[in-house]
Simulated scan of single mutants.
Amino acid sequence: MTLNDLGFNKQLDNYRIEQGLDSFEVARVISEHKDRYTVKTAANEFDAELIGNLRFSAESKHDLPAVGDWVAISEYDENKALIHSVYPRTSILERKAIGKLGETQIIATNIDVGIIVLAVNRDFNINRIERYLTICNSSKIEPIILISKIDLIDASELKILLNEIKKRIKNISIIAISNQSQIGIDIIKQKLTKGKTYCLLGSSGVGKSTLINSLMGKNIMITKEISDSIDRGKHATTHRELIVSENGILIDNPGMREVGITDNSEALEITFDEITNLALNCKFNDCSHTNEKGCAIIEALENDELDNDSYLNFQKMERERNFFDSNQEERKKKDKDLGKLIKRVVKQRKKHKF
């Protein structure tokens, strides 16, 4: 295996030389466990930890390594290494942090393609697809939609389901697959490119780990049997993990119950480009698209030219984006006020000391 097989490129190599990191080994983070990491070089894997300076100089979790990151390391014991620096990221796939207002959570970094996986049974929800598309668009990475477990429905049901998706989502590759019968697996393999990184996104039990096993041709990921009570696979993946295959680099993720939207309005505009384009034709620049005469969106809804469910989902996600944005500004203000308070206390202590 070479570093190129892991996704290393000329731009990263130039950065390594320019920043004087050529005395360190190059590695990629393949898994993260709290404060410890597993990193992979062209020849070995290491249990790695951060040097103190890197840990204490980090202003937020975004400054710390994540799965997919390139890092500069040095070996200090058998299969152990220290992480000295994190290379610049080409993309950051993230969502709103669960239970934390105005904060984001990194899913993975340096992703080329997001593979959105939904099962035809209980998991299927076009609103959820639009959410995944939005976080992909926010990161400026190409999305592919996989509809899994098609062996659970007949051909006519599948056709109806695919038509429902295509009615709302345009110009995105949609592949129907079955890990049981292997239908569609060869089509996915043809879309994978050696050296590119693909991140699997989806809820628990939709078959992401099983898909990786199918693509690898061997059982490298733990999977669990289907639950009769909820008609879905049981969740097996407990942490993010990067796997290198002959066809590309795959990142498996724990299932996401929530796909929270951050403050990227451009990503929403890309996902719902039909609505965005209609809004440009509204009579008023400040149109709320709710009850104004001359509103192009309202006219499109009334004439069945725009899907109502898609518009409702857009409105909901836009409200979430605005809410996230306001809480992020509030959090920044609190951080700023706290910084001022600390400086004031330090200044007063110095004054009383002398």
Rank of each mutant, 00 (worst) to 15 (best):
K40H: 06
Q105L: 05
V26C: 04
A119G: 15
H62I: 06
E59I: 11
L101D: 15
E130R: 10
I106F: 11
L50M: 02
A58S: 14
T41D: 12
S138Y: 08
I115F: 05
K34I: 12
T104E: 14
Q19T: 00
W70A: 04
N44S: 14
E59G: 13
R28W: 06
I51P: 01
Q105H: 09
E59R: 14
E59C: 04
L54C: 09
I92E: 01
I51V: 14
E18W: 05
R95T: 06
Y15A: 08
K100P: 04
A43T: 15
T38Y: 04
A42S: 14
D63F: 07
L133Y: 09
D69K: 02
K61G: 14
L50H: 01
E75H: 05
R16K: 10
H84E: 11
E75Q: 13
P143N: 15
S23C: 08
I98V: 13
I126F: 06
L118I: 11
K140E: 13
Y87G: 00
K34M: 13
R128V: 02
V29K: 03
E45F: 05
V113M: 08
D22V: 04
P88E: 04
A66M: 03
L64A: 11
W70R: 02
R95P: 04
V117T: 07
F124M: 13
D22S: 14
E18S: 13
E49R: 06
K40S: 08
K61Y: 11
D123Q: 09
P65Q: 05
R89Q: 09
N125P: 04
E142W: 07
N127M: 07
N137M: 13
G20E: 04
G114Q: 06
R36G: 05
R122H: 04
E75L: 08
Y87M: 01
G52Q: 04
D13Q: 14
S31V: 05
N125C: 12
D47I: 02
A27Y: 00
D123C: 02
C136M: 07
N14E: 11
V71G: 01
N137G: 06
H84D: 07
L64E: 08
L54T: 07
I83P: 01
A81Q: 01
W70G: 00
G68S: 12
Y15H: 15
D77T: 09
K34T: 15
L101K: 15
N79L: 09
S60G: 11
N79E: 12
S31E: 09
D47H: 05
E18K: 09
F46S: 00
A42T: 10
A108N: 04
Y15C: 07
T41K: 12
S138R: 02
K96H: 10
I98E: 14
D22G: 01
T90H: 10
D77W: 03
A108M: 07
E103P: 00
A43S: 14
V29R: 04
G102P: 13
F24G: 06
K34V: 09
F46W: 02
Y76V: 06
H33P: 00
V120A: 00
S85G: 03
F124V: 05
K40L: 10
S138L: 06
R89L: 06
K40N: 03
K40D: 03
K96N: 05
A81M: 02
V86A: 01
T41A: 11
E18A: 10
A66C: 13
L50T: 00
I115Y: 01
H84Y: 14
G102K: 10
E130T: 11
K80H: 10
I111D: 02
R55T: 04
I111W: 01
L21G: 00
T41C: 09
A66P: 02
I30M: 11
